[in-house]
Amino acid sequence: MARAVWGIVAREFVRFLRQRGRLVSSVARPFVWFVFAGAGFRAMFAGPPGLDYPRYMAPGLLGMVVLFGAFLAALSTVTDRDAGVLRMLLVAPVPRGAIALGKVLGATLLGTVQALAVALILLPAARLSVTPGGAVLALAAVVLTSLAAGAVGLVLAATIRSIENFAGVMNFAIFPMLFLCGAFYPVRNLAAPLRALAYLNPLAYGVDLLKHALLAPWSAAGYGGELAVGFDFAALAVFAGLGLAAATPLLAREDGVTRAAFPGERR
């Protein structure tokens, strides 16, 4: 079973390396935001001394890389179903839970690799100096956030019927997650209903952890992490666990396996 999980992870990685466009856009995307949003909001941002807006945004941008990297990787399960690869997975002598775990770990690997690649350029560009402890915390945050985002993405992928719903996913999942995660403004400044929504968003806990790791010098001024580090970790673990548990039975849904189940209907 370990070999099967490894096989699924390895396939995700090979596919990723082969898709050059995906590689380039995943690395370039945060820098587009860094340059353009950073330039625009810099003047409106009145942070404490030493913290300009591009610097404030850096942890959130890493969270964004994780979101696009891990969440979209898990979402590729929809393509697996359309292309038929999911059928091969389901007829293999592997428990459904191992398939879900393989997909989520693959997403975790992709999210982590992309976030690390971006961090190597972004943190120097933002002139953020990171302590060794901060680096370890940031790495843990990236891995665990990728895991949680991958698990939630897999639930979504197992629920939607085709990639044609992708625009809906962008509008109703990715954008709200991105804007309600504290990447661009502190969650505590949001009105109560929106703040409640933000706390349903796994990415919010990941970005909070990244702020703990990277913006520690400004936490006294209210620009660092808002929740306790242990609470962030626990919340991410809950999202990962619930996501895996929910995705496992959904993956093997009968209408996902066989067209015979719904004659005449185009999946």
Binding site: M1, A4, G7, R11, R18
Partner: peptide
């Protein structure tokens, strides 16, 4: 009836992937 192989991987990579799935 419908294909199951990953079209982006090579023939050998597909079989290697299957070999891992079938342990």
């Amino acid at each position: 009836q419908e294909p199951t192989l990953d079209r982006d991987l090579t023939v050998e990579e597909n079989l290697r992937f299957a070999a891992r799935l079938w342990d």
